[in-house]
C-alpha cells in the first residue's frame, strides 16, 4: 500500500523523533519521487519532528545527545528536500545572528538554539564561538538581521553581552535589533539589567522568544 502525503509527514516526523537519519533521508527521497511537496514535507514532517523532540527535551525525556541525533535526522532529510522547494514557497525569513561571546568556547547550547531556530524557519547566521561583541553588531547590520542572539556559559564573559547592547546604543541602532541572551549563568534579571530584549533558559524557549519578538503568530 502506498503512502499518502500525510503518512509521509508522520513518518518523517517519527524518523526525526526516533533519531533515524537514514530513514529520514530515504523517506525524503520517496517524498520527492512520489511528487509530493517538499516544503510541506519539511514543515509538517521534519520540523514537526524537531518540535516534538524539543518538547521531549523540555520534559527531560531527551537530553543533549538525543536532541543532536534528532537534528542529524532532520538535516539528513532537509538535504534531500531543500533543492526541491518551489521558489514561491520560500517565504521571507526572519534573520538571526547567533554566537558565543568572546572568551568562551563552549558552544553546545548555542548549537542547540541554532538547530531549533532553523527547524522553526528562521535564517540563522552562526558566527561561532569566542566572538568579540563588535562582530555581532557588524554582522547584524550587514545582513539586516532582526535578532541578535548571544550565548555564554561562563560568568566571566557575561560582560560581553552588555557590550553588545552598549555598542548598539552608541551607534543609535538599538531599536533596529532585538537582542536575546541565554546560557548557564544568565537570568531574566541580568537580561533586563543590561537592556537585552529577552532571555531564554533553553533552546525550545529561544524559539518561542524569537517568534514573539518578531511577531510571528504561533
Amino acid at each position: 500500500m502506498s503512502n499518502t502525503e500525510n503518512d509521509f509527514h508522520q513518518k518523517l516526523s517519527d524518523a526525526v523523533v526516533n533519531m533515524e537519519d537514514a530513514a529520514a533521508a530515504s523517506l525524503s527521497q520517496e517524498v520527492v519521487a512520489s511528487g509530493f511537496d517538499a516544503y510541506e514535507a519539511i514543515d509538517k514532517g521534519l520540523a514537526k519532528g524537531m518540535e516534538r523532540a524539543g518538547v521531549l527535551f523540555e520534559e527531560e525525556e531527551y537530553f543533549i545527545p538525543e536532541l543532536l541525533m534528532c537534528s542529524d535526522a532532520m538535516y539528513a532529510g532537509l538535504d534531500v528536500l531543500k533543492p526541491h522547494i518551489k521558489t514561491d514557497e520560500q517565504a521571507q525569513k526572519y534573520k538571526i545572528v547567533l554566537g558565543v561571546i568572546e572568551g568562551d568556547t563552549h558552544d553546545i547550547g548555542k548549537n542547540l538554539v541554532k538547530i531549533m531556530l532553523e527547524s522553526s524557519g528562521f535564517e540563522v547566521v552562526d558566527l561561532g564561538r569566542d566572538i568579540p561583541p563588535a562582530k555581532f553588531v557588524e554582522k547584524a547590520v550587514e545582513i539586516g538581521a532582526d535578532i541578535i542572539g548571544l550565548s555564554t556559559l561562563m560568568t566571566t564573559t557575561m560582560d560581553g553581552m552588555r557590550a553588545v547592547v552598549d555598542i548598539l546604543k552608541e551607534k543609535n541602532i538599538k531599536e533596529k535589533f532585538k537582542v536575546i541572551i541565554g546560557g548557564g549563568p544568565i537570568s531574566p534579571a541580568f537580561a533586563k539589567k543590561i537592556g537585552a530584549d529577552g532571555y531564554s533558559g533553553n533552546a525550545a524557549g529561544a524559539v518561542r522568544l524569537a517568534r514573539d519578538l518578531c511577531g510571528v503568530v504561533q
Binding site: M19, I64, P65, E66, L68, M69, D72, D107, I108, N111
Partner: peptide, 11 residues
C-alpha cells in the same frame, strides 16, 4: 568535536 562526542555517546 564536542557535538560529535555527545552524539557518539549514543551512536
Amino acid at each position: 568535536d564536542p557535538m560529535n562526542f555527545l552524539k557518539g555517546l549514543r551512536k
